[in-house]
């Protein structure tokens, strides 16, 4: 039987390792890895194929860079009621809980603010008036939605950026664990990691050191569970010596001052870990206190 992996190397690659197979591809504008502790090529290939299909599906559906996709439809409804499917409803329900638990700090309607802060070193500080105008369009509490419909004020734009990648990691992990319950696998999308199936000798995962990018500061051993990293190591800019990270406080309209450079949190699943990391970043100086109260393992780089 022809091995199918050769047919699909174009979009992603699958290489043999002594512990199993390493699958690599790109999605959500970040390098993605699937570590599969199993020796059969066709199973590894099928798992990788499932992971890529699911990751691309979520990206195409919720990326704010793709015209005409599901998110685009919602953001261009200018006030009209829109039909939503079950998956979108689940995400909105989760985002609402995060909004309430973080007293409004985590707000997925902060789309317009995101677009203002073009995060690359050459960007200038946006004028205060434009920030106020953008802030006026933000406010998750003004969105009405139920399991079938959503109605947003005109001009409001949702941005699932804060949760989509972690959600994709968990979805892929969930589906792989469901189809192959006894094959340990590690899903890693640009630092957001999930290991649904326990592995006897744990995976060794390197945590990036913000000062020296692309090489691991310290190594975490994970047998099961998830880990998410939130940080401005790549997306930040400095004006008059003040460093602005990519975490914007929706209430002030400005990036959070004194936010740590990066926060890594371990949790039961990637979405929870990611949310805690983002909320810690939003606490700015209070990041350490906040995470200590959550009694989760974490590491913060300042």
């Amino acid at each position: 039987m022809m091995s199918t992996s050769s047919l699909k190397t174009a979009l992603y690659s699958l290489q043999r390792r002594d512990w199993g197979y390493l699958g690599e591809f790109r999605a959500m504008a970040s390098p993605c890895e699937i570590l599969i502790a199993c020796d059969q090529l066709d199973i590894a290939d099928d798992m990788l194929d499932m992971a890529v299909t699911e990751a691309l599906r979520i990206e195409h559906k919720y990326s704010r860079f793709i015209a005409q996709n599901c998110l685009w439809q919602l953001n261009h409804a200018n006030g009209h009621k829109q039909l939503i499917d079950e998956e979108t409803w689940q995400l909105l329900a989760f985002a609402k809980q995060c909004f309430q638990l973080s007293d409004g700090l985590f707000d997925i309607s902060a789309g317009p603010l995101m677009e203002l802060w073009r995060f690359d070193p050459k960007a200038q500080l946006p004028e205060h008036a434009r920030i106020l105008a953008a802030k006026a369009l933000v406010g998750f509490e003004r969105i009405e939605f139920d399991s079938r419909h959503i109605e947003m004020p005109t001009g409001m734009k949702l941005d699932f950026g804060g949760v989509a990648k972690e959600y994709a990691v968990d979805r892929v992990a969930y589906e792989l664990a469901e189809c192959y319950p006894d094959i340990p696998v590690l899903v890693n999308f640009g630092g957001d990691i999930a290991c649904p199936v326990p592995k006897v000798n744990p995976w060794q995962v390197g945590i990036e050191d913000p000062q020296h990018l692309d090489h691991a500061a310290n190594v975490l051993a994970i047998s099961q569970g998830a880990l998410a990293t939130s940080g401005d190591t790549r997306r930040f800019f400095e004006v008059d010596g003040k460093r602005y990270g990519h975490i914007v406080d929706p209430r002030t309209g400005y990036p959070v001052v004194q936010a740590p450079r990066s926060v890594t949190v371990l949790g039961p699943n990637c979405v929870t870990a990611g949310m805690l990391a983002t909320m810690a970043m939003l606490q700015g100086q209070g990041a350490e206190d906040f995470l200590q109260q959550q009694d989760v393992k974490f590491s913060i780089f300042r």
Partner: peptide
Amino acid sequence: YADKAAEYE
């Protein structure tokens, strides 16, 4: 053809 995409790229 998916397997020729890399060639096209």
